[in-house]
Simulated scan of single mutants.
Amino acid sequence: MLDPDLLDALRTARHVVVFTGAGVSAESGIPTFRDRLTGLWERFDAASLATAEAFRADPALVWGWYEWRRSVVHRAQPNPAHLAIAALASKVPKLTLITQNVDDLHERAGSLDVTHLHGQLERPRCFQCQRDPDAPLPVPDEPEAGRRVQPPACAHCGGPLRPGVVWFGESLPMDAITHAFQAAEQCDLLISIGTSGVVYPAAEIPEIAWRLRATVLHINPVPGPLHGERDFALASAAGIALPALLNEAFAEH
């Protein structure tokens, strides 16, 4: 039985913000940056590959790793948490979905207008002129197809395409983080799912909502400390907690 105050906050919410992190995608089998790399990549550190410096030094190595990541995403499927978030959008007047994940599982689950704070694997851009490619990337090969892959050339300037994600040392897209902060300021309920809450500036999103009197729910197998009033936690996998939350909140409404 869930807290009646939490259920009431969800039933009466006019604007819900859902903020997701790597834990949601991990339930679909997508490794997080904290996971040890395996197979052909096990001797590399993920953080050392996710930088502009690494790409300048060895673009084929970095592009090959991101092609491996794309192949994992292409084989993954949305899990019950992704599906529950998409379903929630039809049960509340307004839902804003903000994610730190670079995959497209939210979209494949049926969510619309997803704000990607850290970019998207499927949206590369030129490393030199920053333009988008004229055609989408082809479906990647299987994960063990090879370690080094030369990046495609930009059709505009001939420079190499780079993954369309935010690397370490780069700023988040200004339009995305501004939209996320504004949504946090305006919502009356924020649900934070599968995120550590320690990486700033994204970690400010739940804090902003709580300071401005919204109810905040954290869903994580190991939730962190709470403020107390209007701050709730469910120590559970997202794929279990979210469907149960929706079922209990809306089963008779």
Rank of each mutant, 00 (worst) to 15 (best):
L61K: 06
A76L: 07
Q77K: 14
Q182D: 15
V114P: 03
P160C: 10
P31N: 06
I98N: 09
S71K: 01
H82M: 06
R211V: 05
G194R: 08
H74A: 14
R14D: 12
G169H: 13
G239N: 08
A54T: 09
E67M: 06
M1C: 07
A54W: 09
C157L: 02
I30Y: 10
S25Y: 08
A153T: 10
C187A: 11
F250R: 00
S90A: 15
F168M: 08
A87G: 13
A233R: 13
A235P: 09
R147N: 03
Q128W: 14
D231I: 02
P140G: 02
T99G: 05
N247P: 00
E122Y: 12
H106R: 02
G197P: 07
G64K: 04
L49E: 00
D231S: 15
V16N: 04
E252F: 09
V216Q: 05
R11P: 00
R75L: 15
M1A: 12
P206I: 02
C126P: 01
V165C: 03
R162N: 01
L246N: 07
R108M: 10
V149D: 11
E142D: 14
G29L: 12
D175S: 15
Q130R: 15
F127I: 02
F168C: 09
T51K: 04
I177S: 10
P151Q: 03
L234W: 04
P223A: 09
L112D: 14
L61H: 06
D134S: 13
A52E: 13
A81T: 03
E248V: 11
H179C: 09
Y66T: 07
A180W: 06
W68A: 12
G23F: 07
R125I: 05
A47E: 14
R125P: 00
H218I: 10
A237R: 14
R123V: 08
T99D: 04
M1Q: 10
L10R: 01
D5F: 09
P152K: 02
S28M: 01
G164L: 04
A237H: 11
N101Y: 13
R56F: 01
L137I: 09
A22V: 12
D35K: 08
W68Y: 15
P152C: 03
A22C: 12
E144R: 00
H116Q: 10
S236L: 13
A76K: 08
M174D: 15
V198I: 05
R147E: 15
D35S: 15
H227N: 12
D35L: 08
R213G: 13
A89M: 04
A241C: 01
H82I: 03
V17Q: 00
P140C: 03
A52W: 06
W167A: 12
E27Q: 09
L117P: 07
G110V: 02
H227L: 13
E229F: 13
E252V: 08
I191V: 14
A26V: 07
P124V: 09
R36A: 14
F19R: 02
D132K: 13
I177V: 15
P93I: 04
A251R: 13
T12I: 01
H116V: 10
A26Y: 04
D134R: 12
E122W: 14
